[in-house]
Nucleic acid binder design. Structure first.
Lengths: 287, 287
DNA sequence: CGACCTCACTAATTCGTATAAGTTGACGAG
DNA sequence: CTCGTCAACTTATACGAATTAGTGAGGTCG
């Protein structure tokens, strides 16, 4: 910046004013032009660390994904956030694992703890509660009343919370409390599924597509088939689901828009014109 | 830091010396103790942005994953890097999408362009070339000579490079140049596969498990079965592969170690004692 | 004609750290 | 008694921007 100032014959402060279009600063267009030209010629690039030191935060936002299931939805969410943030001159960085170190190393403008948000009582930010209602609603509409929810054996908070949404959805639809199907090793899962079937369960909702697919596999191991012996519905619309036979019925959410909305939210921008499409059942063969 | 200095009755510089164990600095233990105590009491936490400004780079490293296929290998690689970096006081942040913005916003200690590294002529850093030899070698050992490689229709550089390794492996084993199977929509893929089978192809190697699974699905659509009508082998050992029927034969790599090694490399530490296990075929039913 | 205002800037300070370059007092050697 | 050395610090500066508080020239108003 000092070089630019020297080259254009003004002070460093003036350069800052011009390049940042600082308000309440009366600088004639001629000078502005001179400064901009010099900056361009010298290939001036602001040092974002210095800027961050001055402003108290860097222009990036960190997304913590925790144990969130990977897949198309997460990718789309990330892409959406990234696009919106980029438009505002910010960058998106994703942290797996040791977030704390990373976070204080970059002083992000904001950090988004995605699992925590989804775990919110009403999952408000991303409408998780509403999504769950769509998923369970599909099953209920097909006459299922005795529904189980497939949860990973080594769950973690993320899944606990999501399972909560599914349970709430069942209650809201006047269905009995859903049973839980712990998904683990192939044989154990199959055994548990057999037990559940014996108790009259007619449908299973997976917290994500991978879990639903595991259930489908277990079903095959038992020599049974979906949707006749058991209806299975997933969540998230991963590529895998469409490949399976029977093809997996699942729920698609507008993750890209949710990503964009989240980005605008943390930047303090209006979210009025970014409306995610409602969750939608991708009706295929398994339910 | 100034507060700590005031509280312990020394200068800010001394505090810095003590807290960083600066070499060539003679400070009696008594003083050191005083400073440390004050720091602890005041809950002093160094401002990493200021430190980054001073040192020219922050203590984080950015990993660019580009269009790399997600899955267990990538997760393990990330976990490995993260662990090793954390031990050295650094954080790991992953960039999808607009890496440039993010990178200059944080001035990372290093940035790792994973696809680019894997694309290296010999894929040296992560032994991609050797891995490909293991994959093709398995097929060759079972007597297959006419092998095709499954590549995504919308490939990108990552896959081009990986495909190169597979081709090189075939050549090294004195096999004819492998054909290419473009994987796209279900029907098209099945058609292409039918054509390939007509030309005598007896085995397909997928650049990752997802691609191999798509081939398995296409095979089912054609009313055929693996491994009798076509041997199929994947790469990366994702959870999905084990669920499929026939269960997918694949290649497992020691991604965690590769991650750790990469981390130590970029930090300039010795990599002598971190030796990734060689790639290994997970022999299941499909090949 | 002097007070006051606006324009077009500049000088100086701040953010929090790391470190090079002193400074002071005690002690030993000659 | 003096000089040099060393321990134990302190002072001052730099990193690169943003921003606050001026400052001088020129014009307006009463």
């Amino acid at each position: 910046m000092r070089d630019v100032a020297r080259a254009s014959g003004v002070s460093q402060a003036t350069v800052s004013f011009v390049l940042n279009d600082t308000a309440n600063q009366t600088i004639p267009e001629a000078t502005r032009e001179k400064v901009r030209r010099a900056a361009a010629e010298l290939g001036y690039v602001p040092n974002s660390i210095a800027r961050a030191l001055r402003e108290g935060a860097s222009r990036i936002v960190v997304l913590e994904v925790g144990g969130l299931p990977p897949g198309r939805s997460l990718d789309a969410f990330i892409a959406g956030m990234d696009a919106e943030l980029a438009a505002a001159g910010h960058g998106l960085l994703v942290s797996y694992g040791s977030a704390a170190t990373a976070i204080d190393a970059v002083s992000p403008r904001a950090v988004i703890d995605l699992p925590a948000i989804n775990a919110t009582p009403d999952g408000s930010m991303h409408g998780m509660a509403a999504h769950a209602r769509v998923q369970i609603g599909h099953l209920a509409a097909r006459g299922h009343r005795s529904i189980a929810v497939a949860v990973p054996e080594e769950g973690g908070l993320v899944f606990d919370a999501t399972a909560g949404h599914v349970r709430a959805a069942a209650t809201a639809l006047d269905l009995p409390e859903p049973a839980t199907l712990l998904v683990g090793a192939a044989e154990t899962t199959a055994e548990r599924l057999r037990a559940l079937l014996g108790e009259g369960t007619t449908a299973v909702a997976g917290l994500d597509d991978d879990l639903a697919i595991s259930v489908l596999a277990a079903l095959i191991d038992l020599g049974l088939r979906a949707p006749d012996d058991l209806a299975v519905i997933g969540f998230g619309d991963t590529a895998q689901g469409a490949l399976w036979r029977p093809r997996l019925t699942t729920v698609r959410i507008d993750a890209h828009m949710y990503g964009r909305r989240t980005a605008r939210q943390v930047l303090g921008l209006s979210t009025a014109d970014v409306k995610p499409a409602p969750a939608e059942v991708v009706g295929r063969d398994s339910a």
